[in-house]
Design a protein around this nucleic acid. Structure first.
Lengths: 114, 114
DNA sequence: TCTATGGTTCACCATATGGCGAACCAACAA
DNA sequence: TTGTTGGTTCGCCATATGGTGAACCATAGA
């Protein structure tokens, strides 16, 4: 629970970067080794590995090394967790504005009735 | 479009902090002035104002000054945008695993049939 | 007008982040 | 065994982030 918050910290931080979001997008099409993932980007390998590290410590991706090639894949649970938090917040907001809308409507009805 | 990406950057970055998420949670219950928002936290006003600035430049909240009190409120559009991106990604993932599940199932059927 | 309140700005600090190049290790291929 | 390829680690750098205290401004109230 208290840990959940730190998890959201790291997940949202991981998502707050276009490179890392692009990696996620790529991995949604299937697992891939590090150098293939790095191809589209101009930065050097060391910099790219840092991005992967951020993604992995956030739990958004996992990776496994076989021989000399490390293969990365998505772990969608954390993605769902982040989406869940947002959905929850929006639900509260939605409920509020729905009640507000209902209130405004009831006021309108009263006005018409008067 | 190209700007959309920067928007996601700032929104996710804004969400990657427990203080700022707490502020959002508070604001979901209704608009509030700065000092009231700052009450629950131990940090000084200047630090807290920086958090508000991050939230506001991300577009997650808006604020308006009347007299000497600045009132903050939620702007749910950006929240929805972030949720939308996540939902989109998860849909792709879901589609993939659904197809995978279908494939596994079809393999199972074949195995049973053999 | 004086004072307390709500907010703002400024200068400063420690740490985190995101990038680099260079050197290095390990495994597959010739 | 000797390259070559795929990753990794290291030291370094510039900038961003998140916090501080102190001074300051502006308005509401006595």
């Amino acid at each position: 629970m208290a840990n959940q918050q730190t998890a959201l910290d790291t997940v949202f931080h991981a998502l707050a970067d276009p490179t890392r979001r692009a990696v996620i997008g790529r991995l949604l099409q299937g697992a891939a080794p590090v150098t293939r993932l790095a191809e589209p980007f101009t930065m050097g390998l060391p910099a790219f590995l840092k991005h992967l590290a951020v993604l992995e410590t956030s739990g958004l991706i996992r990776s496994e090394k076989r021989g000399r090639v490390r293969t990365c894949r998505i772990d969608a649970d954390r993605l769902a967790a982040a989406e869940g938090w947002l959905a929850e917040q929006r639900a509260i907001w939605q409920g509020r504005t729905d009640r507000l809308a209902a209130f405004v409507e009831s006021q309108n009805s009263q006005e018409k009735a008067s």
